[in-house]
Design a binder for these strands. Structure first.
Lengths: 106, 106
DNA sequence: TATATTTGCAACCGATTGGTTTCACAAATA
DNA sequence: TATTTGTGAAACCAATCGGTTGCAAATATA
């Protein structure tokens, strides 16, 4: 049962849960109210998100508040960064071409 | 058969293929040489990547060169951006707290 | 022309997925 | 104390996944 963040964010419901709890901690019931599915299903998603440490829980009486582990999201950002570098390079190259054309016009 | 980029990058082999062809176009055979799997398996991954427009192909004789559709990668970056905003906000808040503490020291 | 190479596609397989139903337990409330 | 509420976990199910094998078609090469 190996969990990784990329597999975690592959599911649209889980992505919606992540956005939902990004700004404030919520209980499983409160989260489930926002979706067209059962509480148990949401609970399963929360388990997966917890397993890959994208989400942390805080018990409060019989209620459990789930919130986003923001730092973990940076791992996805880190992977994307290498492509961001490539498209910035290409943009610079385009920029160079454009300024060369401009000079030729003068 | 709904394909979306998040499901596409969920698989580690597909992520590796994406990185592999990011800098240069490659044939299925050449790609498969880099993995411990069959050419047909890579072909299937390429089909999935093509279906969600993350990859484009260019026929050259009997060879087909696959390359990354860099622009499409920005869709993931776009989704991550909302979290980047949050962690920048939190950083600014921390910055504010620190400067307040500094003023109090004076 | 005969043969080798490159490739996509279909059929099949075991494992995994996301969902439901059912149950058990702990905490709050009557 | 008896009941309601909030939750996790197990058992089950159809659908999908990633992989393999085998085949057909097109292009290159002898």
């Amino acid at each position: 049962m190996r969990r990784d963040i990329f597999q975690a964010i592959a599911d649209p419901t889980r992505r919606a849960i992540i956005i939902l709890i990004a700004s404030q901690a919520m209980t499983p019931n409160a989260i489930a109210d926002n979706f067209n599915t059962t509480r148990q299903s949401v609970s399963k998603h929360l388990r997966i998100l917890t397993e890959c440490e994208l989400v942390k829980q805080e018990q409060q009486g019989r209620e459990i508040y789930y919130s986003l582990e923001l730092e973990k999201m940076k791992e996805i950002d880190k992977w994307i960064e290498q492509f961001r570098k490539i498209w910035e390079t290409r943009f610079n190259q385009l920029d160079k071409v454009l300024s060369t054309l401009k000079k030729q016009k003068k």
